[in-house]
């Protein structure tokens, strides 16, 4: 070992991430060429979801443990970043009763984002220390506990978080180009994590925990690392969300969002980063179509009835159908480079 170099799987990972990055850039390019202005918002939301789903893959996919806490971490990051970056003059209006001088300071966008990542990461580490000790169902319930606790704090401390009302006046800092860069970077990081030593040990422990322990894998440690790493992705997503929308409220950081992102991940396939990307894109496109149907459009001269709940129905249908017919999702264990380089892989 003269000098640490990337092994072949990691080199494949770089290639795969680059291909996924091209897919993402192609989507953005298509929007700039042919898209209409109102689609920018949808695309931005899709990419924020993509950040979350890729982060979710880092823990849920590699460790094969269902976690529902991501909306909580995203909310923490979004609120931290928003409270730090909003100008003090604006906060005097939007947060008049905030304690601890929260409405009397302001930070630069970069410092706010850094602080948001730091706080989310520290909370991720603290929860992770407990989380990584548990087994399958316990972990899922623990993650739900985190989600419920964080949500009730958001709702309860209206003086800081405004609860279900909007916290407004956040300057618009990020736009589509910057977010695209973040998404591509996230894809690279998630894929490199998957192919890293820790990622490999984590996947081994997911397949056969006893076997992995016998081979010397410290399951607690690798789960903890993955958990904290994934909270950092959620932090990035929360910051991207807050820095674009201008207003945030507690409502989106709860179960509905959790359902949506988990559906995206399992449609594509938990086990690969490519699955996370494709699942997010497919469900986002599909949902837009279903939402259009839901409002009762006029189709071929016939006014369709308004069908409230159709999008949720479709989402649930996708989850059940995928689990019944393709338990490993569309991509299964494969990454995009496996599809492109299939022949070399087989030979």
């Amino acid at each position: 070992m003269s000098r640490p170099r990337l092994n072949s799987a990691q080199r494949r990972g770089l290639l795969g991430s680059a291909l996924l990055g091209l897919v993402v850039i192609a989507v953005v390019g298509a929007y700039y060429l042919w898209g209409e202005a109102w689609q920018a918002r949808i695309l931005y939301a899709t990419f924020v979801n993509l950040l979350v789903v890729v982060g979710l893959q880092v823990f849920m996919g590699n460790a094969n443990i269902t976690s529902f806490a991501h909306a909580a971490f995203m909310g923490i990051a979004a609120y931290t970043a928003a409270i730090c970056v909003t100008p003090a003059a604006m906060k005097a209006v939007s947060l008049p009763d905030a304690p601890w001088g929260l409405n009397a300071f302001e930070l630069s966008p970069l410092a706010s984002a850094a602080l948001a990542v730091l706080i989310t990461g520290v909370l991720g580490l603290l929860t992770g220390l407990f989380m990584a000790r548990l087994n399958g169902v316990g972990m899922t319930i623990f993650s739900i506990a985190i989600l419920v606790i964080v949500h009730s704090i958001f709702l309860h401390r209206t003086d800081i978080f405004k609860g279900n009302q909007a916290l407004f006046g956040i300057p618009k800092i990020l736009d589509l180009p910057q977010l695209t860069l973040m998404v591509v970077a996230a894809i690279f990081l998630a894929r490199l994590f998957r192919e890293s030593r820790t990622g490999l040990m984590l996947r081994a422990a997911a397949d056969d925990e006893v076997g992995a322990r016998a081979m010397g894998v410290d399951v607690f440690r690798v789960r903890l690392v993955a958990w904290v790493a994934s909270t950092l992705f959620f932090a990035a997503a929360g910051i991207a969300y807050a820095f674009h929308l201008g207003t945030i409220s507690a409502r989106p950081f709860y179960f509905n969002f959790v359902f949506l992102t988990v559906a995206m991940l399992i449609l594509g396939g938990l086990r690969s980063v490519s699955g996370a990307v494709f699942g997010t894109l497919l469900i986002s496109i599909g949902l837009e179509a279903v939402r259009w149907l839901e409002t009762g459009p006029v189709l071929a001269g016939v006014k369709l009835p308004e069908l409230l709940g159709l999008s949720g129905l479709a989402l649930g249908g996708v989850i059940v159908a995928v689990m019944a017919f393709l338990p490993n999702g569309l991509m299964g264990n494969r990454e995009i480079d496996d599809l492109v380089l299939r022949r070399r892989n087989g030979g």
Partner: peptide, 24 residues
């Protein structure tokens, strides 16, 4: 007979379907 995650997510999908059926 599938693993825990598969069953959990299926049940979770069924729950979303039923909730939205009630809504619809």
């Amino acid at each position: 007979g599938a693993d825990l995650t598969t069953g959990l997510l299926t049940a979770f999908g069924v729950s979303i379907i039923l909730q939205n059926l009630f809504l619809l």
